[in-house]
Amino acid sequence: MNLVFDLNTIWFFLVGLLLTGYAILDGFDLGIGALHLFTKTDHDRRVMLNSIGPIWDGNEVWLVTGGGALFAAFPEVYATAFSGFYMAFMLLLFSLIFRAVAIDFRSKQIYPLWRKIWDISFCVSSILASLLIGTALGNIARGVTLNDKHEYTGTFWNILHPYALLVGLFVVALFMMHGALFGIIKTEGMLQKQLQKLFSKTFILFVIGYMVITIATFLFAKNLTEHFKASPFLIVFPLLNVLTIANIYWQNKRGKELAAFFSSCATILLLMFIFGLGIYPDMLYSYNNPENTLNIYNAASSQKTLRIMLTIAMIGMPFVIMYTSTIFWIFRGKVKLDSHSY
């Protein structure tokens, strides 16, 4: 494949990096949400909520900033995808709103019914958000129908293609597994044992999903496999991915909580990398007429803006990484409930 390190490629990579940051960070707290109803006692549920309590909000900022960066660097993709997948994005918004307020409101009243309603909201909205994010990725992988004005010509129902839904379900399983691993780090005792069991189950789902998606990609999203056919050495990345997945299982078995979680992070990073490699240099592939495809050149902002944005990112991102890691460090260790907890 031909990789040119121009500004457009750098921004393709950076937007991808922000969205990967989102997938890794919000991935585990969406996973905690998806697993929430499997825990039964009020105490356990509060521990689940508070394991992500101080950080979920910052994690979601990766999506906001990723969306902003997409808007700034590739406005054509932002405009086409957001208006084309209108109902899907609205559903994602509603689930993110419900999720945010469920986390904040849930423990503010002691009535069992109140807590139950918000528990259900938290769980359902987390699953729905994961499903929608995955389905969006599935549609980008498979391609969409675009006209020569770069407008989406399909309907809401076209978005629900079986391949896209499959990717959606896969992402739900991935986040649940990732969330379980995060939960294991943050909890102890019976709850931790339960999360251990949940990990085993979701890990199996994830592995099955991984295999099915790999086969399905060769059938339904052939454009994604072309680089790999043209440059066989790229196969090292999927192979590396298999190793990180095996390592999750291995580290978890050895009782290395952190190592297993970081392996899961690496798995998500590689998955996103392989996905990005597969679609590069396209961003929204038009399968009805490949000439209408939005790629990193015809969808981009001017070179000047990409340069300015790069300066902004280079000044801002080191700070972001600095305070993100500081916050994670301050709130490390097992969850202890106190009067400030959710």
């Binding site: 101080p54 910052g58 960066a69 406005p75 902004i312 700070f319 305070y323 500081t326």
Partner: peptide
């Protein structure tokens, strides 16, 4: 407007939202 307006919005994310949400954790729970 993406070329112009988008940059300001992205700068808001990078310079403001991360700062605000990060330190809010310490403000509320720290």
């Amino acid at each position: 407007v993406g070329d112009v307006f988008g940059s300001a919005l992205a700068a808001e994310g990078i310079f403001a939202f991360f700062l605000e949400s990060g330190f809010l954790a310490i403000l509320l729970f720290g």
